[in-house]
Design a protein around this nucleic acid. Structure first.
Lengths: 127, 127
DNA sequence: TCATCTATATGCTATTAACATATAGATGTT
DNA sequence: AACATCTATATGTTAATAGCATATAGATGA
């Protein structure tokens, strides 16, 4: 029974299924390492990652992008040529590639940590 | 370059290595499914999990335990017989076992999600 | 004209990890 | 006896973030 109530708790964080996603940053970096892109498109791309159940919050994505730029991991410029409203196109920098690499190592470690946990769980249930 | 400064930012969350641990609850449940235990001992046990880099924050552990009890996933009683100060011994309930099972399924899913991400990363770097 | 789609952005709240500190009984040392 | 240390539990505060709501505006189509 979750102690959370009200409209802000449709996705309560206290139960396993309702995960806080902390993977917006590494996902953005991976997408941008593949090709330059912009917020609206990146939102759709992240939506297809298993790490994100459905499209991520647009607000979160735009804020992450601005921050990554402020910190020098990506660069942006306005693209006005194409159809529709102007897009802010983002390109990953060398620092961004380094950060992505660090994320990959970290996520590899987390995978191993999860495997350890699940192994312990298996050992318990097979007793 | 992280925009975080000051004493509260020795462990900045924005960089891969500085992970927020969101695994105290499932770790506690797994330990308690193995055997009844108490806060101080559980802190040490969690410290040996790869999911936790070093001993977790005692405050966090004690609060998690109280909340798990409030929500019916564990039960506790004071143990005064042994040496040292009294211990609040925790025992997992049937609901707690169910919750643990749900956590295991969720962490299995997260492991798969991480594998997907890392596979994409590998594909990129092998180009 | 109006609705809808594309696109970016900001404001607010709840939750949580991290950090700091408080309390107190038990044990060991001089 | 006095004192430090260890065991054990607990609370107060802050910073960071996910999630939700909302604002803005140009482009497209009916």
């Amino acid at each position: 029974m979750c102690s959370c109530h009200g409209p802000r708790h449709r996705n309560c964080h206290h139960q396993p299924g309702n995960k806080p996603e902390r993977f917006i940053q590494p996902s953005l970096l991976l997408c941008l390492a593949e090709k330059s892109s912009y917020g609206y498109e990146l939102i759709e791309q992240l939506g297809s990652f298993r790490l994100h159940s459905g499209n991520p919050d647009p607000g979160a994505v735009y804020r992450h992008l601005r921050r990554l730029e402020m910190e020098g991991y990506v660069e942006s410029h306005w693209e006005t040529g194409e159809a529709g409203p102007a897009k802010r196109m983002y390109t990953i920098t060398a620092d961004g590639i380094s950060l992505l690499k660090a994320w990959a190592a970290e996520l590899e470690e987390r995978k191993a940590a999860l495997e350890e946990y699940l192994h312990k769980y298996q050992k318990l249930t097979n007793k």
